[in-house]
Design a protein around this nucleic acid. Structure first.
Lengths: 225, 225, 225, 225
DNA sequence: TATGAATGAGCATTCATTCAT
DNA sequence: CATGAATGAATGCTCATTCAT
């Protein structure tokens, strides 16, 4: 009744170990600084095995990125059905919690740092990460406009504004200073302010929406690892 | 009547050549990937000379950063005296033109990519780059609030909002995709929209200010190199 | 039925090749002058292999010293049981043949030359080489004194005298002039004279012992390599 | 009335500074380990000047050796005219004090360490240092034999025995362990014992000579620098 | 399939030496 | 005559990659 034979399980687990080791090594030292020896050692795998699985340093690098990208997309939030403001609030926090996870920040630093050398990778990341999230937000905002709750001409700009108001400052800071993630309160300051400005500029009934916003509380953060 | 003797001139010019070569090599390949051989070759200088000038790879890296940081600060815009909206508009364009210069984007990618390995450098950059610009913007906004033209509680948040609305989207995209700088029109789209949202949310007289904004035209971009 | 698997045999042989190549290179050029490239080339091994085996130049240097030191100690002579004079004669020749072997002279030159830079190495050599031999000689002389065949107060001084009379001149000369090892006859001149003086000064029955000495003949030397 | 013009004086003084700096650097690090930069720096001279004076590293090395060799020869002791035993005693101490001077030990280590690479230098040192001293001692011993105070067949062997008995042990130890020069008492132990054994083996009137020896006291050492 | 052992090519750095001034 | 500045060639060491087993 075993879905997967032993061999296959073993393979998958080994592959996972390698990817995880590689992510941490690449994140710590950048692409060139990373040593395949170090990766093999952390993955508790011999070097030829590592090469059997991933072919070359460059391919391994690519494999990490696509793996992590998938994980990130998974994090996209779905409407709560408790009204527009609650939806935006939920989305904002969900996204903040995703985007500020240390591993994803490491990954982003890695991609940005290597964007010049591996332009494909930067493009792929942009397309399947930020751009896809943006599309989701745009769709949501369009729905609200149709329902008469928001006003705007350009949905893309509106979606970008939402993101920029809520997360650009904390994320930029976190990208530069790895060990200084914003605390829960600091993050709440940015999220709340961002939503407030967004509603003031885009809502058809700002007064009411801001009141609603004031009733919403900060959700619990996910535990650090 | 020569202000500088030949030797000194030569030294300065050589130093500049090295720094420029180093910036491009570091930007292309990251810190670890950069080879001192390659740098020396591009600077048309022998390797020992390079070492005589900058001591070590790490010191050379540091020298680039501080040089570029200075250049960036230099770019800070001063009030035009033609009213708040014109000032904000001028600042937005000036800063956009600075921040999106290819060399400064390269530098930013470099710093972000190495932030984990050289935490001090990330911190120093944040403190003397973004943080200082932010302080300048805050001061300007405070002045406008005192003059009764803007309303806000937290000047820092307001300043961050201004930046996030105007530049976060184009800059983030440019960080990921080096060869896709926004064109003048695309940039205008973001700048104008950002200022509009900002004024709608913070101005004491949005209707009038938006009208003023509509009269301002896109300044000429600086030539690419 | 193979005691050692191929791999292990290979390793051992390679290690020996490296040590031998390293000794000759170090001896020819001193520690700083020796190049790891040269050593690898002579050992017919790639440079990374060399580093896999011995870690660093300094460790390789240390490995040579301890290897040769062991070999030297191995050379210590055991009593023949044919009387004191025969024993001293056998010891003198055995020790001369050891101490004047070109490799050991090279090693001694190396250690002396680097004593200032690596004080531990000089100390270790003195303790485990000369000092240990001296202790052996002292013990032997004490036995003879107890048996009433020698007279002296200070066994250490007596042992040092024996060595100094027999070998100091030829060895010092050999240390300075590498390609001028004393021939068999020249060596016999020093050994015989040394023993004669030693017996005249220390024996309880010099006349008889000198007669015995005269009957002993020069042993065959070991072949040069 | 100045014997030497300023220029010439300056030249000589500079040359001396270079030689002294070079000796210490060579002694500390061996020939290959020594850096011309370091030597120039210690001599407070620019590198081209250094090359002007001594042509090349190898020539500088040679120049040091001949300079020091001359100084060493200067140290040879002349008969005191107070009898054979007193002469031998004086010679032994004089020579011990010369040969165990730290600078001369450094020089000897240097020459021995580089003997394989620069055979000429080893040979030259042997000929003009030890061999010349040996010749002096031989001449002295011959005189004593002619005067009927000593008996021996081979003056060279006798002279070598004298040296070997008195200094071989302390000097060998000092060569290996640079920072462990024998103290005055320890040295006296070796010198006295060496002379005693020498006289017992070679004197025509050992009893009387040993008595004389016992009346002689240790001369004052020269101050360390 | 998995690995210990091996390697060619490259790294940052330093050297002895020589110009141009 | 003396020097600051420059360099070609080497140094010790490490890397991504690949055999032989």
């Amino acid at each position: 009744m075993n879905a997967l034979p032993r061999r296959e399980q073993n393979r998958i687990e080994k592959s996972r170990r390698i990817l995880s080791a590689a992510l941490s090594v690449f994140a710590e030292t950048g692409y060139s600084g990373a040593s395949m020896d170090e990766i093999a050692q952390r993955a508790k795998v011999s070097k030829p095995t590592l090469y059997q699985y991933f072919g070359s340093k460059e391919q391994l690098f690519g494999a990490i990125l696509s793996q992590e990208r998938d994980e990130m997309l998974d994090a996209f939030a779905h409407p709560t059905g408790r009204g527009m403001v609650a939806d935006l609030h939920a989305f904002a926090w969900h996204y903040a919690d995703t985007v500020l996870r240390p591993e994803l920040l490491s990954l982003a630093r890695l991609i940005i740092g290597e964007a010049q050398r591996f332009p494909e990778i930067g493009r792929a990341y942009q397309a399947s990460g930020p751009d896809r999230v943006l599309a989701g937000v745009m769709a949501h905002l369009e729905t609200q406009r149709t329902a008469g709750r928001l006003v705007f001409d350009d949905a893309e700009l509106a979606a970008e504004d939402l993101w920029g108001l809520i997360l650009s400052a904390p994320r930029n800071r976190a990208l530069h200073i790895p060990d200084a993630l914003p605390g829960r309160a600091e993050l709440a300051r940015h999220v709340t302010n961002g939503l407030r400005v967004f509603l003031r500029a885009y809502s058809t009934d700002p007064a009411h929406d801001l009141e609603t916003l004031a009733t919403l509380s900060v959700p619990p953060g996910r535990p650090m690892e």
